[in-house]
Design a protein around this nucleic acid. Sequence first.
DNA 1: CATGGTCAAGTGGCA
DNA 2: TGCCACTTGACCATG
Length: 318
Amino acid sequence: MRIKNRNNVKVLFFYYIYNMNRFGYACINTELTAKGISSSRSMKLSTFLKNGRTHYDTTVIGNLGSLLQTLKWNEEHGIKVFRISNDLFPHKNRVTLDELLEVEPIRVLLSGIGEYAISNGHRLSFHTDAYSVLASQRESVVANAVNDINFVSGVLDAMGLECTPLHKVNVHIGTSKPSKPQAAENFINGYNLLSPSAKRRLTIENDDKPSAFTVDDLYNLIHTHIRIPIVIDYHHHSIHNDGVDLENALSKALSTWNGVRPIVHYSSSRKLYEDVKSPVTAHADFIYEKIPTFGRDFDIMLECKSKEQALLKYVSCL
DNA sequence: CATGGTCAAGTGGCA
DNA sequence: TGCCACTTGACCATG
């Protein structure tokens, strides 16, 4: 949605009347990646152990430079919402953010990225991967999850981004063992181990597996206790919802944001639109239907395999 | 230089 | 209790 209009009042009025949702995409810009500009260069453990910190720092500095270029590309294309890849900093359990911030180019790039994001009104966030399980029954897994979440929350802090779910760190619950209520309690115990910054940024997302947490589960078993916002994933909800309809689930999720602009996740079903042999959980390359918003205003993180291309295609059809 | 096997991570279903 | 599938993009050894 590219709006270039000298008459700001008119533009604001337009937004007000039409209740404009903003769109973002996750982690990878395929166009820039094809040109070698990637903020998610990773590193095998063997390489990290063999080549050490100098090599690691070089990779991270490259990722940060590419991230800034990606944000500039986003700005040029009217995109204000972006999820940062976890691979921005690989091997977060083998380095500390404090020691990395002693490296001048890393510190300078982080603050530069933050300044750019703030001056252009960009919303940046993280989403830890499926292996960060705060609710795990294994103490070492919880410790790793706490470290990961604190780390990326600290990265957002180092960028100078406001410490609220506007710049969130999103997680899945990741397990429902030994029982859903007990897993929720374990999650809350894990939450209490987080840094103050991470606690203020943390959000939780519904999942698609039959045993996993729906929006209602998140609301009843977690939100009522620690009041953190719920990110509804439309695709997950469509697969696993315990009979609650979309409008109700959406409404419940939006009600948890406490004045911060909510965000949701959206993707089309690959099985339904692109390849019947795909599992129901697979995401499509593009968006194939009008995203139902029920007249509500919030940000929409698109999780399409074709990334920014899917976003541009979708908004060009609005 | 292109390609495809391998890697990280943790859960959960199944022998 | 052990093993493998699951997921994903990028690494990196091989040809």
